[in-house]
């Protein structure tokens, strides 16, 4: 049986990769990250599906790109392919073509109809913040109801209270914090705003020294589901997050 082909973009299979994102590419913006991954995919010889039009591009969708200066153990990308391949072999091929600091942690196949859906499924992401003395600086901020900082995006500045977006913070040690926050296309808290808040409300002039790593990303697998899951769970990652929102 021939697999269903989506005629608008000739995709026949969609592979979801979970990547470690580290090294020098932590310091580049989303467009450049995208391009780096495109090139790795082409070097790996994966039969990626191209968009139509004047400037055909390989079709890949990041679940939630982490920003400049943020590393990640939960970078997810859905890659549309024009020909069916073995997922494990594809992951191996990609792994050996990736630039320094990037690595495939897992792969899974997702339904072709969901090729571009993942962004709208993201609800929560977890971060690790590290720096000497970060815990005693950050925890007091949570007592406040208002943590309004100026968010600069698309050439405009607007105030944003980030406090409601922070769900949970746990100090693992004096130098290491776990932070869970709302994420996704509707309500998003960029991690650099946390550094801004540290500077603004804790008077922490060295806030920028903090290293930020995304630990996990949680999606609502389908409408009405009552728990959030990881897009790809690795061995031993069994927990879910109870969810009663949309």
């Amino acid at each position: 049986m021939t697999p269903p082909v989506d005629p608008s973009n000739n995709r026949v299979q969609v592979l979801r990769f979970r990547l470690v994102w580290g090294g020098p590419l932590v310091w580049v913006a989303h467009l450049d990250r995208m391009r780096a991954l495109e090139r790795a995919i082409l070097r790996a010889g994966l039969p990626v599906a191209f968009s139509q039009g004047y400037n055909p591009r390989p079709q890949l969708v990041f679940a939630l790109p982490s920003g400049v200066g943020v590393s990640s153990r939960a970078e997810y990308v859905d890659v549309s392919l024009g020909r069916e391949v073995d997922a494990e072999q594809a992951a191996q091929a990609l792994n050996s073509s990736l630039p320094k600091g990037i690595e495939v942690l897992g792969v899974t196949e997702i339904p072709v109809e969901l090729a571009t859906h993942v962004m709208s499924q993201v609800r929560i992401s977890d971060y690790v913040l590290q720096r000497s003395g970060i815990s005693s600086r950050f925890l007091p901020l949570l007592e406040r109801e208002d943590l309004t900082v100026m968010k600069f995006s698309k050439g405009k500045e607007r105030p944003l209270n980030i406090r409601p977006l922070i769900l949970e913070v746990r100090a693992e040690s004096e130098d290491r914090l776990l932070l869970r926050r709302l994420a996704g296309s509707r309500e998003n808290l960029r991690p650099d705003l946390l550094l801004l808040a540290l500077r603004q409300f804790a008077g922490d002039t060295e806030a920028d020294e903090t290293s930020i790593e995304r630990r996990d990303l949680w999606i609502l697998p389908e409408k009405g589901a009552r728990a959030l899951v990881r897009p790809i769970a690795l061995a031993g990652e069994t927990e879910e997050i109870v969810w009663d929102g949309e």
Partner: peptide, 23 residues
Amino acid sequence: LTAALLRSVALPGRYVGGELNEI
């Protein structure tokens, strides 16, 4: 190149090196 240094410039990717095929 500390995080603070790199966070303070517009295009930190210019300074970190580590590109594919770097020697």
